[in-house]
């Protein structure tokens, strides 16, 4: 059986909120290392990969592998019933028909119990390869969100160019063009404001801003975001969570337009 208690229901709410517009029906794969999810969007150009390690829960118990097939719209409806400060416990039997969600108030004696009917989702496991990226950029998540939101007002696509000059986000649209360049930057007092650029080769790729803006819904989960790029390889956008957990998005580059 699965029993996973999360001190902050809000973390799970934010994760589901960040992915629910990209993917609809997903398997939450539970085993003794934690709860993982991998799903592609309908157009097969973006991929979500979430890992909530067992250390993120206290306690965490999962005796055998359990796949919880959940519709994220349904899950969102139930998670709305949790207060941000509630403690969340996920429960399921070994061959479950439902997943149970229990919300406990830390301050009062309220206990709320909900269940969601599970779906049988036939989802092949995607082998995401270990990749040596040509360029890795760590930057404030809010900054990346702002750049994407600003540029989508002008264009559907953004080019991300990484060179020894820094990283340049540029777009061209009907009304004109826009570009934002960031250079490596260290803020001793506020390390969450740092921009770190590691590059082994210059990289230039173009991406659909619609997807990037969507990924940025995860900005509330982490102060920093990491962008990993290599020519002709999907971009990795990573939000690190506590206890080595993460939320990752992959996006295929646009080619030849």
């Amino acid at each position: 059986m699965l029993e996973a208690r999360l001190e902050q229901a809000n973390l799970f709410k934010k994760v589901v909120d960040a992915i629910k517009d990209l993917v609809q029906d997903c398997n939450f794969d539970c085993n003794d290392s934690g709860i993982a999810l991998q799903a592609m969007d309908n157009s097969h150009v973006a991929l979500v990969s979430m890992m909530l390690r067992s250390e993120s829960f206290a306690p965490f118990r999962c005796d055998r592998n359990i796949a919880l097939g959940i519709n994220l719209t349904s899950l969102t409806k139930v998670l709305k019933c949790a207060q941000s400060d509630d403690i969340l416990t996920l429960k399921a039997e070994d061959a479950p028909d439902v997943v149970e969600l229990v919300f406990e108030s830390a301050e009062s004696d309220r206990i709320s119990e909900y269940s969601i009917k599970l779906m049988d989702i036939d989802q092949e496991h995607l082998g995401i390869p270990e990749t040596d990226y040509g360029a890795t950029i760590s930057m404030p998540a809010a900054e990346f969100q702002r750049i994407c939101r600003d540029l989508i007002a002008l264009s559907e696509s953004v080019s991300i160019e990484c060179s020894k000059e820094g990283v340049k986000f540029a777009c061209q649209g009907d009304i004109g063009s826009g570009a934002v360049t960031l250079r490596q930057h260290t803020n001793v007092d506020k390390p969450e404001m740092n921009v770190e650029i590691n590059m082994s080769e210059p990289v230039s790729l173009t991406f659909s801003l619609k997807y990037l803006v969507n990924f940025c819904k995860a900005s509330g989960l982490s102060n920093q975001v990491r962008l990993c790029l290599s020519n002709e390889v999907p971009l990795l956008v990573e939000y690190s969570l506590a206890n080595n957990s993460h939320l990752r998005f992959y996006l295929a580059p646009k080619i030849g337009d």
Partner: peptide, 14 residues
Amino acid sequence: KSFQTEIFKFFLDG
């Protein structure tokens, strides 16, 4: 879009 999908397939299949 089909190009993008192909890139993804190639990436995932290694």
